[in-house]
Amino acid sequence: MNRLDNLFATKKKDILNVYFTAGHPNLNDTEDIILTLEAAGVDLIELGMPYSDPMADGPTIQDSSTVALKNGMNVELLFEQVKSVREKTQIPLIMMGYFNQVMQFGEERFFRKCAEVGVDGLILPDLPVYVFEEKYKALFEALGLRISFLISPQTSEERIRQIDDLAKGFIYMVSSSSITGAKSGISDEQMAYFNRINEMQLKNPRLIGFGISDHATYSTACQFSSGAIIGSAFIRTLDKATDLKAAIKGFVDMVREPEKVA
């Protein structure tokens, strides 16, 4: 069974999904970061494929991508790292990147490789929904791969329904009109949007991401969905870390159980 399906079948609330850019801070940190996040109780991990022009991302993720590329990260190497870490963990893993990277690798070859090394799902923010439907949906089904699409406060109800019909895994709910890492805190307007989507009773579970950075924002997101996605705040923690493992554990505790840290 796909590990994502498994997760969402057994856990309905308070899911924590952490994003980091593969190859940052160091080329070979991928395995340590994944295993430490798992040990700290994270449910799901998103591996960012570093890209030169990540247009949906803010400065934190772009800078971490620049570092990762300088370190020599590439898709081929990331697949090797995932394959090797898969022997040590069954945590659901998602790859997130831009469609051009997939195109250059060869779409079909890329998706087959994902399935082969144990990637459970993909997030490709600039892959149009209809292109996925026409060209790759059948292959994803055959390979048992999941795909998540984004929705934002501007997405129409009709389109959300279409996306819900097509998505498999979870829906990535962008918390506000923003790029990653942009805003902090959650406004009343965002709450209204969270409520509105909550009431739509979608088939897929939803995770809320963008602007989630601490316990307060995580808890609010969890009230309105199955859980939350944290990226930029975690990357900033890695940037500052002297002891990587301790920093990761400290970060997850800060998000989930701040009383324990204090």
Binding site: A56, D126, V174, I179
Partner: peptide
Amino acid sequence: GGAFIPEMLHPN
């Protein structure tokens, strides 16, 4: 051609 854009830009 086409429009390979993140969902956040889709409405615009």
